[in-house]
Design a binder for these strands. Structure first.
Lengths: 189, 189
DNA sequence: GTATAAAACTAACAATCGTTAGTTTTGCTT
DNA sequence: AAGCAAAACTAACGATTGTTAGTTTTATAC
């Protein structure tokens, strides 16, 4: 049991509240109550409400960026790369499903600098995904459907995992990965 | 050109703002500015901020409920029923993509009564969807993958259409339906 | 032109927001 | 026991929130 700093505890509690009501609807007094202290005491550990949000989102976005870069640079065919992307999303979701709510729904409340940084990471991520699918179509690994629709459909499912996973009791991570790959790649009929 | 009431104009403007920043982050002064009037003037047309939100969400939820009930009661096989569900989502998205943002992200800010009503409609909708897929599996129309994953995956994509559709310029509705059915049902490899 | 209703306005309210300043408590180290 | 830093506290600030009351403007019908 690693000694978790008070700041990390606050950020974790905040992520849960942000997931339930969204960043704007959660007050510093709500967060303090969840921590069992007064709102002003939070400021012994964090600089601002905004700092909490940007920590949650930017850390996760960088995790996805790092993971995607490894996948892009690995020596596999398109299908295997897409399987790795599915793996990546499931891994991150299992580790921090609360934070993913903020990444998905509250990124627009980031301030200027971090907002730009986030939007660039998201854009690059999607672009990398798109290129992998394109290459798969060119090499006739992947069916020549509308590429935008394939990318969008897959990403939608992976990005929404955070909502669905916590409701499934005791689902095995490897089984989840296997089934998700089947459904997303091979279709249901 | 039907005469759109001032109230309808306000709700439409609100849906756009809610989509951009979420219900809690949009103030009545923001909404008034978007309408070119003062905040207090809004109250000549609407009762409260909450009324705007519940109008947006409940109307849409009832639309989905009605559509799903027709599909459930029609005399088709599971595959055709799923195709109809895809149709339904695309139709609603084309008609009111702004409002769908609130339905997806701000339903938790509904008050007690409407919150319960909404949650029941959503639960029934998902249950109907699940049963259609189950029947399809039983009759060997649909592959025997994990049902929860198939339902979740399809619904995630359809629910997120509102984010993606407005970015695609001039995409034809029928083409979109056709390709979406292909990707969601037949898989990409 | 005058009456009437719709729709805008100004001004303000009580509540709540994120945050700061200054102080006290807590828990460890010596 | 004393000293000290971490972490809690109380009290309050200026700004903003949704909303109300009362008034004025605008547009339509006669």
């Amino acid at each position: 049991m690693k000694p978790e700093s008070r700041k990390e505890e606050i950020i974790k509690a905040a992520a849960i509240l942000f997931k339930e009501k969204g960043y704007s609807a959660v007050t510093m007094r709500d967060l303090a109550k969840a921590m069992g202290i007064k709102a002003a005491s939070l400021y012994n550990h964090i600089q601002s409400k905004q700092e909490i949000l940007s920590t949650i989102i930017i850390d996760l976005a960088e995790e996805f960026t790092t993971g995607m870069n490894q996948i892009v640079n690995c020596d596999k065919n398109a299908t295997k790369k897409i399987e790795h992307i599915i793996d990546l999303h499931i891994d991150v979701t299992l580790r921090n499903s609360d934070g993913l709510a903020s990444l998905n729904n509250d990124w627009m409340h980031l301030e200027e600098k971090n907002l730009q940084y986030f939007e660039k990471m998201r854009h690059d991520y999607e672009e990398n995904f798109r290129n992998i699918v394109k290459k798969g179509v060119d090499q006739e690994e992947i069916k020549p459907f509308n590429i935008e629709i394939m990318v969008f459909s897959t990403l939608s499912t992976l990005r929404t995992l955070y909502l669905w996973y916590p409701k499934q009791k005791n689902i095995d991570a490897d089984l989840l990965k296997h089934d998700m790959i089947s459904v997303l790649l091979k279709g249901v009929i």
